[in-house]
Amino acid sequence: MAEARLFLEKRSYRRRRIMDAVRMLPFLCTVLWMLVPTMWPTGTDGAAVTPLSTALWYVFVIWALAITASFALWRRVHRKEGGTETGTGLSDT
């Protein structure tokens, strides 16, 4: 491992930020999937009930977006890895 440098060149910098996104994505999905649906009106407090079709749309659109984001991040990491920098930059950033 090289000694820690304060600033990185652009390529390494970009790759680290992509890995930050990889790390953040599950938390975003957790909020959208586990917290948001629990706040939908269920009809008990007088508000209109959330229709099932709306709920379906919501869950599956988030799902598709999450998969797309995950795929795009994998592509980015994959491409960067294929570049001049080799090694296990993923594991020890």
Partner: peptide, 24 residues
């Protein structure tokens, strides 16, 4: 989608606790 909203299961009635607990 129209038939889904017309069906007996159309209402969103999942309790928050159950939703979160089963996902976890």
């Amino acid at each position: 989608l129209a038939r889904i909203d017309a069906s007996p299961i159309s209402d969103w009635n999942t309790g928050g606790g159950r939703w979160t607990a089963i996902t976890f």
